[in-house]
């Protein structure tokens, strides 16, 4: 009987090895291990055996059953796995297919430069202020030490409004507004839209963007101004820049400067961008004029400060290599989608 058990066991294992489908595996299982299967039939004959013999063969039979069941399970798992692999094989997707739906839009290049500068200045402790685009003559001129008959008014062609107000010609009015609201000591910037009554061409616009900056504290000096300008210009251009101050006249600063940076294209050797001078004029700046401090309610004997004006539109032109200023306000998506 032992031989029969072993033969049945071996036969079943051989059939299992040949079973290529789950149905075939099930047939082997039913044939060998089913209630009326061959191994069950064998066990019915155990009743006639001596107890020791019955125990021995019973153990043998159980071992055979367990081995067979285990083999059946792994055969099923292998077949299922193969079937899954086969199905997945047919589920290939071309991942280079363009994604459906709307593409991301874009932020205006001036917005991007402005936002970056706002974050930069905030990180250095500067408050970000806003001022009105329609400004009073007082804030745009008088409070900046530019009285009515001052020839400096000709330096900026002004859009006057019929009600006597004007469109701000610079962001500088926010200097006095900032002094009034924040009170010294203060550090502030004011980015925004400004207007000049100028004919428009590739390098002139009547509408453009500036960023005003001011620090007022005790004993602020030219040395401090140079330090700040150099520090944040290096951050803006993401490299160490060399700056140079030279005299410049702006009634709301004294002394007043034009700040040049060493040409980033040629490194100061001279090239067409810097007109062979090695320097590129970047922004006007200076120490806040005592009259402006007084207009803003600060005592110039107690407080002093520096101020500067950066051309945001100009910075955006430099950064992206834009050669026509009219594109900024042209609303042409062929241009704007590039950023």
């Amino acid at each position: 009987m032992q031989e029969i058990i072993e033969k049945l066991h071996q036969d079943a294992l051989a059939q299992l090895a040949e079973a290529a489908t789950l149905e075939a595996v099930e047939a082997v299982r039913v044939d060998a291990l089913g209630r009326k299967g061959k191994l069950a039939e064998i066990s019915k004959q155990f009743g006639r055996l001596a107890p020791e013999e019955r125990a021995r063969l019973g153990k043998l039979l159980n071992t055979a059953k367990q081995e067979l069941e285990s083999n059946i399970d792994s055969r099923i798992a292998a077949l299922e796995s193969a079937a899954l692999d086969k199905r997945l094989e047919s589920e290939w997707i071309d991942l280079t297919t363009p994604a459906p739906g709307i593409r991301p839009g874009s932020l205006h290049p001036v917005t991007q430069v402005q936002k970056e500068l706002e974050e930069l200045f905030r990180s250095m402790g500067f408050a970000v202020l806003d001022g009105p685009e329609v400004e009073s003559e007082y804030y745009n001129f008088d409070a900046l030490n530019i009285p009515g008959d001052h020839p400096a008014r000709d330096m900026q062609d002004t859009f006057w409004l019929k009600d006597g107000r004007l469109l701000r010609t610079h962001t500088s009015p926010v200097q006095v507004r900032g002094l009034e609201t924040l009170k010294p000591p203060l550090k502030m910037i004011a980015p925004g839209r400004v207007f000049r009554n100028e004919e428009v061409d590739a390098s002139h616009e009547h509408t453009f963007y500036q960023l005003e900056g001011m620090m007022v504290d005790r004993d602020v000096s030219v040395a401090h101004l140079i330090y700040f300008m150099k520090t944040f210009l290096s951050a803006i251009f993401k490299r160490d820049v060399t700056v140079r101050l030279r005299p410049g006249f702006f009634p709301f600063v004294e002394p007043g400067f034009e700040l040049d940076i060493q040409c980033l294209i040629c490194g100061g050797k001279g090239c067409p961008v810097c007109k062979q001078s090695g320097w590129v004029e970047l922004c006007p700046c200076g120490l806040v004029h005592p009259a402006v401090l007084r207009y803003g309610g600060a005592d110039p004997e107690e407080w002093s400060g520096f101020a500067f004006g950066l051309g945001l539109t100009r910075l955006a032109m430099m950064r992206y290599g834009i050669d026509d200023i009219r594109l900024f306000t042209g609303g042409d998506l062929r241009f704007l989608k590039q950023f």
Binding site: R103, G105, L107, H108, T111, T329, L333, L336
Partner: peptide, 17 residues
């Protein structure tokens, strides 16, 4: 607001005043 609009496919324009 700008970031939200741009992320949904809108491109920012500037117009004259």
């Amino acid at each position: 607001v700008r970031e939200t609009a741009a992320s949904q496919g809108f491109s920012e324009i500037y117009n004259y005043s």
